[in-house]
């Protein structure tokens, strides 16, 4: 059995229905633990006060906002190369989730920035990149909605996703060049391993990141299932019209 056998919608649905209860429970447990721990049981930062608690939402949401686009990029590529419908539908299903994650990152960031930087919004490279990412999500979803034929829609949105990815990276460097910015650097550099966050904050943050990841996976599986069913309805209706 290779992974491609799950490109069959029936098999995919069967697997996703089997896996989903575990995913939802795990996501709920992680999110509840991480957020409650973070909200009730972590100390205040000596400079940021209690606003440090916003990190448990802001960082995981931002992480998933980027990962969602990355996932869409991969599933779009799979659709273009191997033409598995499930893959294209998964990309479609992930876009609104990514959009909401981006929105959460932007909103929590603005609320945090107000007392800390003294402004809701700053044209800082990271903030600006996220705003651009938000626009990319909007455009991607609008294109899906606008095209009648589902296969053409999948094709065009996939190409848009590829081209958009290139331009998103370009924009990232362009705005970095354009304004140096206020946003602190990453607190958890994976490559060097030198964290600047102490364990008191890091452990609940890690749990929240896992929780957001699981929530994303569960949501995308569920929404992909919905899309597969909608597509099946369409096929059935089309077949009936032909036989009538």
């Amino acid at each position: 059995m290779s992974i491609w056998s799950y490109a069959n919608p029936v098999k995919f649905l069967a697997l996703s229905i089997r896996v989903q209860p575990f995913l939802w429970t795990a996501a709920l447990i992680c999110l509840a633990t991480g957020l409650i721990w973070g909200f009730f049981a972590t100390p205040d930062d000596f400079r940021q006060g209690s606003t440090v608690k916003i990190i448990y939402l802001h960082v995981p949401a931002a992480l998933m906002a980027i990962n969602a686009w990355f996932m869409m990029l991969i599933t779009s590529l799979i659709w273009l190369v191997r033409r598995h419908h499930v893959s294209a539908l998964a990309a479609k299903a992930a876009a609104p989730v990514g959009l909401v994650m981006t929105l959460i990152a932007l909103i929590t960031g603005a609320i945090w920035g107000q007392p800390m930087w003294g402004t809701w919004w700053e044209w800082d490279p990271r903030l600006t990149s996220f705003l651009i990412l938000f626009l990319f999500y909007l455009g991607y979803m609008a294109l899906w909605e606008a095209i009648e034929d589902p296969d053409t829609a999948a094709d065009l949105t996939s190409v848009l996703c590829l081209v958009g990815s290139v331009f998103a990276v370009l924009s990232r460097y362009a705005v970095q060049f354009w304004n140096q910015g206020l946003h602190q650097g990453t607190s958890i550099p994976v490559t060097t391993g030198a964290r600047t966050v102490s364990d008191v904050f890091f452990v609940p943050l890690l749990i929240c990141m896992i929780g957001f990841g699981l929530l994303f996976a569960a949501l995308v599986l569920y929404r992909t299932g919905t899309e597969i069913r909608l597509r099946r309805i369409r096929a059935l209706r089309a077949r009936m019209e032909r036989t009538l």
Partner: peptide, 26 residues
């Protein structure tokens, strides 16, 4: 939450609301 109570609570509120909305619509 000290003097930043409004900010922290509204950040949590807004985020959870958005997530709930997404969940509900899905």
């Amino acid at each position: 939450l000290g003097k930043y109570a409004v900010e922290v609570v509204s950040a949590y509120g807004a985020s959870l609301l958005l997530l709930a909305l997404l969940l509900g619509l899905s």
